[in-house]
Design a protein around this nucleic acid. Structure first.
Lengths: 145, 145
DNA sequence: CCGCTATACTTGCGGTGTCAACTATCCTAG
DNA sequence: CTAGGATAGTTGACACCGCAAGTATAGCGG
């Protein structure tokens, strides 16, 4: 139960700031992260859906938005006509880099002020165990780009 | 980021079961809990909203549903005509008791299989710190009723 | 080569929740 | 006692997301 409260409170804070500063949802940002770190900056929509834990229709609609903004494009798959890739554009990458800066700062301000690094590690490890077997396949959100 | 994943995965699991077994949302259940433990089994809508971290309009709509089902009624406040109470009915209490059994079992099956009691305590304490100053005012969900 | 099943994706519909605007009531200062 | 501002609650418009159903492609067994 405390879990629900924590989540509601946290996403409220973070998404409000993201939204205000860049007009992005947390899920939008999550998708940008996944794409930015993916090989060739593209992913199949199904895989993307699994990474961010959205249903297929959720991904379609979320990407509709990102495509309208020009951050993402559709890409065809030569070997399988069923699949469509979501491809991060140059402007999308630029957008991501810009957003990342303020978002990491936001996160820092929320978590940094409440936890030290051991606690963060502990929290992250505990949370990781809540994922169901097939969920994972997530990309870490650190330095490179 | 792992936090979002954990939440999505967890609520997916729990709410699917709750939904399937009793036609209730996690938030619906949360409200039932708050009311069941409140004095006279009633709360002002504002306070309720704060407890479950919903906006005022969110509470109105959630309670609309519960009222239609007959679990909750509106109650007037003699000393202040602006406030409306949400009152848990007898049938609502009965419903809550029934749901509680299976929901606690669901929780047990998700958390119990992944954490021992120390870890649970640690997790709960860490999550508690994410709440913003004014959020709290939550009721624990244990035994009595 | 023909059907069959499985997979990738989209679309219509409905639920849930937010925000902004509005009403009604309360309370305090002058 | 009245004007102003705060507080409780509702409503309308809208965003987001899941489910179920539909389309298109893939790939396999006969």
């Amino acid at each position: 139960m405390g879990f629900l409260r924590a989540h509601a409170s946290l996403t409220r804070q973070l998404s409000a700031r993201l939204e205000a500063a860049h007009g992005l949802t947390l899920n939008d940002y999550d998708v940008l992260v996944q794409l930015a770190y993916a090989p060739d900056r593209q992913l199949r929509r199904v895989d993307l859906a699994r990474s961010v834990l959205l249903s297929p229709s959720g991904i379609t609609r979320l990407l509709d938005g990102l495509e309208r903004e020009g951050w993402v494009e559709k890409g065809l798959c030569p070997s399988d006509a069923r699949v469509t890739y979501a491809v991060l554009t140059e402007t999308g990458l630029a957008k991501f880099k810009a957003v990342r800066i303020t978002h990491l700062a936001d996160i820092e301000s929320v978590f940094g002020s409440r936890f030290n690094s051991e606690e963060l590690a502990a929290l992250s490890s505990l949370l990781g165990r809540l994922l169901t077997p097939e969920d994972p396949d997530v990309v870490c959100l650190e330095e490179p780009v």
